[in-house]
C-alpha cells in the first residue's frame, strides 16, 4: 500500500515536470511577449531599448534555459510577480483561488447532495413517471447554458423579487460581529452563482448515479439479499448503493480536480472575485508567471485527484489490491 502510494507520487511528479515544460513551451510559442506589450504604450522606445529589456528579463534566452530558471525560482518558493499587475503572484492569486474554491466546492457538494438521491429514485423505478420527470429535468439542466441561467436567476431573484444580491461576494463596507453573521452575509451572495453552476452538474451526476445504481441493482446478489429476508432499504443501501458507489467515485474525484480552475463566465456575470477571470486574462496578456502557476495548480489537482480516486477504490472495493 505505502509502496503503491510512493510509486504513484513519483510518477505524478514526473508527469507534472513534463507537463509544465510543455505548458512553458506553449506559452513561449504564443505571439508577442511582455516587452511588446510594454513598448506598445511608448512610441519613443528604440530598438536598442527593446534588446536591453529582452535581455534584462531573460527573454532572449532559449526556452529550456528560461524554464530551468523558472523551476529553480519555484523550488525556492519564489513564484515571481505578475507583469500586468506588478505585484507578487501569490498575493494576487491567493485570495482569488480561495474565493473560487469556496464557490466550486459549494457547487459540487450541493450538486451531489441533490443528484445522488434523484439518480437513486429514478433507478429504483425505471421508466416510471417519476423517472421520466427526473430525466426531463436532467436533460434540461445539461442543455441549459449556465450564463443564461445565471441571467434568468438574477432577473427573477435580484431584480424582480429583490431577495438576493445580484453580484459581488459580500455586502460592501460590512463589519462582521460574529462568524455566523459573516457566514450568512457571504452565503447570500453565493446562492445564485452556485445555483446557476449546479444545474448542469446535477443533470450529469444524476444520470450517472441512475445508470450505476440500475446496474448495481441488476446483480444476482441483490436477489440473494432479498431472499435472506432483508428489508428493502437495507438491500438498496447496503447492497445496491455500496456497489454503485465504485463508479461514482471516479466522477467525484475528477470533478474535485477543477475546484481551483474557476468558472470564467459565471464569475464574470456575478462579479465574483474568483480565479477564472484572472487565469483567462493572464493567458491573454502574456503574464507568464501567473499563467504558469495556474497551469501547475490545474495539472497537479487532476493528477492528485486521480491518485485519490485510485486509493478510494481500495476502500470501497475489496477486490482492488495495491501491488
Amino acid at each position: 500500500m505505502i509502496n503503491f502510494i510512493l510509486r504513484r507520487i513519483v510518477q505524478t511528479m514526473i508527469v507534472i515536470v513534463i507537463l509544465s515544460y510543455v505548458c512553458f513551451g506553449l506559452m513561449s510559442l504564443m505571439p508577442g511577449d511582455p516587452v511588446e506589450l510594454m513598448i506598445s504604450a511608448n512610441p519613443k522606445i528604440t530598438a536598442a531599448d527593446v534588446a536591453r529589456l529582452r535581455s534584462f528579463y531573460g527573454l532572449d534566452q532559449p526556452v529550456y534555459k528560461r524554464y530551468f530558471n523558472w523551476v529553480s525560482d519555484i523550488a525556492t518558493g519564489d513564484l515571481g510577480y505578475s507583469r500586468t499587475y506588478r505585484i507578487p503572484v501569490e498575493e494576487m492569486m491567493g485570495p482569488a483561488l480561495g474565493y473560487t474554491f469556496i464557490l466550486s466546492i459549494t457547487t459540487l457538494l450541493f450538486s451531489f447532495a441533490v443528484a445522488v438521491p434523484l439518480g437513486i429514485i429514478s433507478a429504483l423505478r425505471p421508466n416510471s413517471r417519476i423517472d421520466y420527470t427526473i430525466n426531463l429535468f436532467n436533460f434540461a439542466g445539461i442543455s441549459m447554458p449556465s450564463f443564461w441561467l445565471g441571467l434568468v436567476l438574477i432577473i427573477i431573484f435580484a431584480v424582480k423579487l429583490k431577495w438576493l444580491p445580484a453580484s459581488g461576494f459580500q455586502t460592501t463596507g460590512m463589519e462582521y460581529d460574529t462568524y455566523w453573521d459573516e457566514f450568512v452575509d457571504k452565503g447570500k451572495y453565493l446562492i445564485l452563482p452556485v445555483l446557476s453552476l449546479s444545474i448542469q452538474s446535477i443533470g450529469r451526476f444524476s444520470r450517472f448515479t441512475r445508470s450505476s445504481m440500475l446496474e448495481a441493482m441488476r446483480n444476482d446478489f441483490i436477489r440473494t439479499a432479498r431472499a435472506k429476508g432483508l428489508a428493502r432499504n437495507v438491500v438498496v443501501w447496503k447492497h445496491g448503493f455500496r456497489n454503485a458507489l465504485i463508479p461514482l467515485i471516479t466522477i467525484a474525484a475528477l470533478s474535485l480536480s477543477s475546484v481551483f480552475s474557476g468558472a470564467l463566465i459565471t464569475e464574470t456575470l456575478f462579479a465574483y472575485p474568483g480565479a477564472g477571470r484572472l487565469i483567462y486574462s493572464s493567458i491573454m496578456g502574456n503574464d507568464y508567471n501567473v499563467a504558469m502557476v495556474s497551469f501547475l495548480i490545474s495539472v497537479s489537482m487532476v493528477l492528485i485527484m486521480n491518485l485519490m480516486a485510485d486509493l478510494l477504490y481500495g476502500v470501497v472495493d475489496p477486490r482492488v489490491s495495491y501491488k
Binding site: N219, D220, F221, R223, T224, A225, R226, A227, K228, G229, L230, H239, R242, N243, I246, V316, D317, P318, R319
Partner: peptide, 19 residues
Amino acid sequence: RGGKMAMIFQEPMTALNPV
C-alpha cells in the same frame, strides 16, 4: 424469507456481494 424458507442460487460467483 431466509428464516423458515431459504434459497440457494446457481451462480456462487455472482450471488454473493463482492464488497
